[in-house]
Design a protein around this nucleic acid. Structure first.
Lengths: 212, 212
DNA sequence: TCGCACAACCGTTTTTTCACCCATTTTTTG
DNA sequence: CAAAAAATGGGTGAAAAAACGGTTGTGCGA
């Protein structure tokens, strides 16, 4: 029996997915959690899941943070990202933090089953979403995996850009000069191919870079 | 047997919810659709569902549009809105267009079951999300149901506000003067209690007023 | 050690956004 | 019908955002 944990903030999806997986041969849902923190609280060292199906956008503790924590504290647990969106940046962020696969919420149940089986047997599941990101890359190192790689400062700024604060106020929050913030903005305009602050916010939301 | 149709754009949720509902006594999922248009295409006059569980944010044809269409073309079909968010405005919009109930995606399966049963037997399911909106109101009439009632022009503007267009360009798109657009903006700033365009966009997205 | 790339920083100019003031017309309502 | 409310269009000025052209310092590899 392969032990599965489900982490997603929508009860209905969690419960019904639990039923669906429970019907599959060889799989047993042992943990359900509404966010990363709830998952961690339920983990017991002598009774860990083999696989975690992890949503990305969640309150309290999101999928990226939780995957990172699992990699450090329970590296034997294999995380599969379960996301609503198809986006290079978020795929890379999850893989870099230790996810073994990345599938969409509108995949067929059969693909989900195959992903869980492969991850359990081979340790990874590389579908067409993941493969292009793996071409001779070492995910452990900080390499420029993608032209659209956003660095830490830019990411923090991007999240602030989704608020009503002015750039000046964002600069204060981040502890850098207003001009530096302008630089982040200009860099992101180029990388993300947008030209307004609304464009930034929409991008961040669409790519689950912010918790709304 | 109560015949149920599921309309949601995420295959996994649809399939697993279908399994969950199928396990309940008296309920049978006869239609699954990824959006309103798919639902309509599958409807046959001699074999209609009793209940439709309707997601709100969907591509092609969203939950509000689809509910409105069903009310006009198949008033016997009872729609229950199934949403991710708890928000007065979207609750009212769904009810005004004919929905018989409104439940959240993170409710317990038991509440879903109760909602379906009540809607089928009594014609409506009013939980704590809906009741406050019904106090002596006639939803058929265009009444000021709420202080935060957005009119049609403002709603169209609000959707444009989630793009990279300037107000001038939005005015051209809407075929009104730039000043009128300013008026829409100022009215929404007050009603929605925001003060920047990013605030508008975030509100619209958070409340599923736009299809991202 | 010499560039090279890149992040952080700075200043200026133009465009857009926002906050006030207002008038006119249409619709709603008592 | 008359009064009230809502929708539309308008102007000005201050603030913010965006486009542009720069400098400096640091790390890294050829």
């Amino acid at each position: 029996m392969i032990k599965v944990a489900l982490v997603d903030d929508h009860v209905i999806l969690r419960k019904s997915l639990s039923v669906l997986i429970g019907m599959l041969q060889d799989f047993d849902v042992m943990i359900e959690a509404g966010n990363g923190k709830e998952l961690i609280e339920q983990l017991k060292d002598d009774h860990l899941p083999d696989i975690v199906l992890m949503d990305i956008t969640m309150p309290v503790m999101d999928g990226v943070e939780t995957t990172k924590w699992l990699k450090q504290n329970h590296p034997s647990i294999k995380v599969i990202a379960l996301s609503m969106i198809k986006n290079d940046l978020i795929v890379i962020r999850m893989l870099k933090n230790g996810a073994r696969g990345y599938i969409l919420k509108d995949c067929e149940p059969e693909e989900l089953r195959e992903a869980m089986r492969e991850v359990h047997e081979k340790g990874y599941f590389y579908n067409e979403l993941v493969t292009p990101k793996m071409k001779g890359k070492n995910l452990e190192k900080e390499e420029p995996l993608n032209k659209v790689m956003i660095n830490e400062g830019e990411l923090i700024f991007l999240r602030w850009a989704c608020t009503e604060k002015t750039y000046k106020e964002i600069a204060d929050e981040m502890g850098v000069s207003a001009r530096t913030v302008d630089g982040y903005r200009d860099a992101l305009f180029q990388k993300l191919e947008v030209s307004t602050r609304v464009g930034l916010a929409i991008y961040a939301i669409r790519n689950e870079l912010v918790t709304l």
